[in-house]
């Protein structure tokens, strides 16, 4: 049997296998790099465009390399957005909503996972329904409800649902937490129960700290979705001075585009300063806090996804 593997036919077969494995590996890398470019494209496009001077914007030969770094766009968009105060508002509202989601969805998810009670299957059906029902189907009654409650013009229509397990994808987060708690061994919680710990304090002391991975997943998704949402806020908030950052963008794009076109036809001199590039710079400023947060959370987030038990193990 000595050297069985490395003789004659076996040896060449092994070589062939190694070679094809190498080829597969190279192909995978090429494909991944190609894909990475497509995925990074929106960001690259945004960053390059935001640094273009007005001349560059009009010059179609300037594609990826602006003639210089035109930081003025950022100065303009900074003041157009009213960045510091708008940022503070957005952080407060989005932070409040995300915190609400984490609290309510883990709490309710635990209830669905651990207890049996009358009506549970009906409630679970309603939960599934809340995931797939389009906001648009129920937005009119919601609007009437919030206007009756005197919430219009405040941030409460975004905040209140998220603290009650609804709002943007609240149902999905409950679902994720539920799957995680189902897969979590009960022994620790039972031990706490025997020691006289009530169900609610068992949840806060044992189950919630154990679910850090699911918390990470829901934290990132909820943060991103709330930060980018401008559909619902635009319906409930009409005063411009209360606008959140992403809500300011559509108007900005319209105005910038208009000025750019006006100056192209030789009319307005303002278009020599305000162009699409300014709007792009504004967009970058809007997503920048999100980017920074993601950089910090990224590693834990990917790990969290791998351990969150969304897989129903």
């Amino acid at each position: 049997m000595k050297g069985f593997l490395l003789q004659g036919k076996n040896l060449s077969r092994l070589r062939g296998r190694l070679k094809s494995a190498l080829l597969v590996r190279i192909a995978v890398y090429l494909l991944l790099v190609d894909l990475a470019f497509v995925f990074a494209y929106p960001f690259l496009y945004m960053m390059v465009t935001s640094l273009k001077s007005p001349q560059d914007v009009r010059d179609i030969t300037v594609n990826w390399l602006p003639s210089g770094l035109h930081w003025n766009n950022y100065r303009l968009s900074f003041s157009l957005l009213g960045y510091p105060s708008a940022l503070a508002r957005t952080v407060l509202v989005v932070g409040g909503c995300t915190l609400g989601h984490l609290f309510s969805c883990s709490f309710v998810g635990y209830g669905f996972a651990r207890f049996s009670f009358r009506g549970k299957s009906l409630f679970f059906l309603l939960l599934l329904l809340s995931i797939i029902v389009p906001v648009q189907t129920i937005i009119v009654p919601e609007y009437i409800f919030f206007s009756g409650a005197g919430f219009l013009g405040t941030y409460l229509p975004m905040m209140v649902p998220s603290w009650l397990g609804f709002g943007l994808s609240g149902g999905l987060f409950i679902f994720i937490f539920r799957l995680f708690y189902i897969s979590l061994p009960r022994s620790l919680e039972e031990a706490a129960g025997i020691d006289g710990c009530g169900a609610v304090s068992t949840f806060f002391r044992i189950a919630l700290p154990a679910s850090r991975s699911s918390v990470m997943v829901c934290l990132v998704l909820s943060l991103v979705w709330h930060w980018n949402d401008y559909f619902e806020p635009l319906i409930y908030i009409t005063q411009q001075k209360k606008y959140l950052l992403p809500m300011l963008l559509p108007g900005l794009y319209r105005i910038m585009g208009g000025m750019q076109d006006a100056s192209l036809s030789g009319g307005d001199a303002l278009g020599d300063i305000y162009t699409e590039a300014v709007a792009m710079a504004a967009t970058f400023l809007v997503v920048l806090p999100l980017l920074i947060a993601y950089l910090f959370l990224q590693k834990k987030f990917v790990q969290g996804v791998e351990r969150s038990g969304i897989t129903g193990e």
Partner: peptide
């Protein structure tokens, strides 16, 4: 245990009444 289940679902049930069942029936 049964009552604890309702305690955990309470926030969601309140939410469901206002943000799911009511809008459904109304619409």
């Amino acid at each position: 245990r049964r009552w604890s289940g309702y305690v955990f679902l309470l926030p969601w049930l309140v939410g469901a009444a206002f943000f799911l069942v009511y809008p459904f029936v109304f619409s």
